[in-house]
Amino acid sequence: MNSIFSIHTIRFISLVMLQVIILNHINFLGYINPYIYILFIALFPISTNRIVLILLSFLIGITIDLFLDSGGIHAGASVLIAYARPVILKASFGAIYEHQSIKFNTVDFGSKLTYFTLLTITHHLVLFSLEIFSISKILLVLRKTLFSSIFTILLSIIVTIIFSRKSK
């Protein structure tokens, strides 16, 4: 328990720092940034209490908001995907999820990609709707969601491949 706790603390701080120091300054083609801190929510152990996950998602979102002066948009989007995570898990992993025995290192690549994709697109759609906050600019919201999602999913997959421990 103790080691799990410290792993997640380190992951929390390093993802926030990575996001704030590097990824918020990429601005590819003017406005496309990856938001990779949602990996913290995606890779959180499934067996843990959902309340803990929702609270921690709020915390990581509000920390990013604090750095970006963006009100509560990251907090809102993060809390939403933390709450919706069981549904997304069920949709992408199916039967394995019922047995509560998913190890993110061992599941096959296809369902992992589906999982990240669903999570990222939900998060980004809420994020950019809250950021732009205007129905008349719906096209801008969708465009930002599409491009940023592609970027985030690619980067999440790469990061999980690099940092995955080989199962012996």
């Binding site: 929702i54 609270l55 509000i62 009100g71 509560g72 907090a75 809390v79």
Partner: peptide, 25 residues
């Protein structure tokens, strides 16, 4: 809990969209 936290975030977001409203974040 989700509803409460989402409501708080929404409040912060709406505040940030109006000019010079006092906000903590």
């Amino acid at each position: 809990l989700f509803f409460l936290l989402f409501g708080i975030s929404l409040l912060f977001t709406i505040q940030s969209h109006s000019y010079h409203k006092s906000k903590f974040i």
